[in-house]
């Protein structure tokens, strides 16, 4: 399943390289965060144990690894793939679940604050909620690949 989403040839290089360990804030500052260990398990097909690990959620998606990567790949891709898999299995951080539910219901992650009025701000522009909900349901019915490209 992960083969369709990740480029294993590039990940083989990642498993040995680690150039990004010097710029990745999580590698530098979070104990036990070791993307190469995760990638080696992905390549060996033994990644299951990571789905329940807090480490796969510690990639900050800052894209710093991508910018210095010799392959312009970065291990962020591996973390995202495992997160998606974990969510599919129902292993979802509460905040992610809450965020997604709000997004799916309204097309937004929070409504404009009533405090805006007191600050003399204009009425917020409409956010096309109905159109968004329609698009979302069309999408669910469609066969648009959900896993995306690599």
């Amino acid at each position: 399943m992960l083969e369709t989403r990740l480029n294993f040839k590039l990940l083989e290089m990642c498993a040995d390289c680690g150039a990004c360990y010097n710029v990745c804030p999580s590698c530098l500052h979070i104990e036990g965060y070791d993307p190469r260990a995760v990638i080696r398990d992905i390549l060996a097909g033994t990644h299951e144990r990571w789905l329940t690990s807090k480490h796969i959620w510690q990639c900050l998606e800052c894209h710093h690894c991508l910018e210095i990567c010799f392959q312009h790949y970065g291990f962020e891709n591996a973390m995202t793939a495992l997160r998606t898999l974990a969510i599919k299995k129902g292993i979802t951080p509460t905040q992610v679940k809450k965020g997604w539910d709000m997004f799916a219901k309204s097309g937004r992650l929070g409504e404009p604050s009533p405090m805006r009025k007191r600050l003399g701000l204009p009425e917020p522009p409409g956010s096309a909620k109905e159109e968004f909900l329609k698009l979302h349901s069309l999408y669910r019915e469609s066969r648009l690949p959900r896993k995306g490209k690599v």
Partner: peptide, 11 residues
């Protein structure tokens, strides 16, 4: 937002 929405559903 990427970390919430993209992780759940890239499409």
């Amino acid at each position: 937002e990427k970390s919430l929405v993209n992780n759940v559903d890239h499409g």
